[in-house]
Amino acid sequence: MKPFQLTYIAPEAVLLREALSGWGISKRTLASVKYGGGRILVNGKEVTVRHVLEKDDAVTVIFPNEERGAGLIAEDGPLHIVYEDEALLIIDKPPVQNTIPSREHPSGSLANIVAKYFENQGIPATLHIATRLDRDTSGLVCIAKNRHIHHMLSVQQQGKKMKRRYQALVHGLLEKPEFVITEPIGRKSTSIIEREVRPDGQFAETQVRVLHNFCGYSHVQLQLNTGRTHQIRVHLAHIGHPLLGDDLYGGKRELITRQALHCDKLELLHPTTGKRLNFTSPLNEDMALLL
């Protein structure tokens, strides 16, 4: 299996270690290259990070192959691939499928199926899921094919350069056409699963736009400005408009048997080229029928 590698061109004379840091290679990644079987080449010759680069030198970082953890079982299954290249895999996840295995659902997750896909394609990587979705939530999921790419995506998320948009159906009619929910979210003291708005929670912000009010429920568009666990579900329940089907947070299952939440748009900068990528996903059939 061919290892993942990236090539950079030195813009000026500089110490290699400093250049690598400027290109986003973290100390942890550098250590994995150094001690895990990777290599660093300058103009085709292996060097150490103490090497002094000249302007226009070609620096190739060969990352070590990764091994999948023994706990993740590779399984055959359908995958709706929206986009793929040597660094990224964008998947459109159906509802009622875990992103990663859990104690209640140890198999059949997106991670299980992607592991088998990587195995079949000869991709030497473990699973690096950059944007997880809850089991019942459908839509776009971003997966990195390398530990370094995952790190680069995490930096983007922290810098708010990656954007995720959702569509949802909520109970009740919302009066304001657009508003922002800014409420801290933390784990509920009586549960290991539930979250709630609480003063000692982490800062969380959700932008809400009403697309249409129906009889008894509303179609809304949501933009996450932070990425807390269950953020959309908790924020909407907090303002008295829980998601249809979300019985954990007060939603009813009369019209739909899962939480009516779908990640319909994903924007990010490609971690190696810097090019802005935009992906969209149509609503799943169960939500579309309610519209």
Rank of each mutant, 00 (worst) to 15 (best):
V210R: 00
N278V: 11
E194F: 03
G250H: 08
V155F: 08
A74K: 15
T229C: 11
I239W: 11
I113S: 08
L211M: 06
I181C: 05
R195Q: 14
L20I: 07
L6P: 00
G251V: 02
L174D: 04
L291H: 02
L224W: 05
G108A: 08
Q202Y: 04
H51F: 13
E175T: 14
E54P: 00
V59E: 01
T182V: 02
N225A: 03
Q223F: 04
P271D: 12
M287G: 04
E18M: 06
L283P: 09
H219P: 09
L248C: 02
D76K: 12
R147W: 02
K161D: 14
R258Q: 13
K265C: 11
R209I: 00
T126G: 12
V59G: 00
A288Y: 07
P64F: 04
D136M: 15
G251Y: 02
N98D: 15
C215N: 13
T280P: 13
I149Q: 04
C142T: 11
L261Y: 01
F203V: 06
P184K: 01
Y8K: 12
V61Y: 01
A13V: 00
G122D: 14
L127T: 14
I100P: 08
T60W: 07
A10R: 00
Q156M: 09
L79T: 06
E267C: 01
R187G: 01
Q221V: 01
H212R: 09
G24N: 03
L79N: 05
V180E: 09
G139S: 12
K45L: 08
I149T: 06
D136C: 13
L266M: 07
Q158T: 10
T206M: 01
S154A: 10
V47M: 08
T229I: 09
I129W: 09
R50K: 14
L244T: 13
T226M: 12
I113V: 15
T280K: 14
D85W: 09
K45I: 09
I113D: 06
T257R: 13
V197H: 05
L133W: 03
D76W: 07
Y249H: 06
H105C: 05
Y249A: 06
I73G: 08
K34H: 13
C263D: 03
L41I: 09
T206A: 00
R132D: 05
R276M: 07
F214N: 05
V59Y: 00
G159P: 03
V96M: 14
E254V: 15
T273V: 11
M162D: 02
G38C: 03
A19K: 07
D246F: 13
E285K: 13
E178M: 10
H241A: 05
K45C: 04
A130N: 15
H150A: 11
I185A: 04
G274A: 04
Q157T: 10
A168I: 05
P101E: 02
I239N: 12
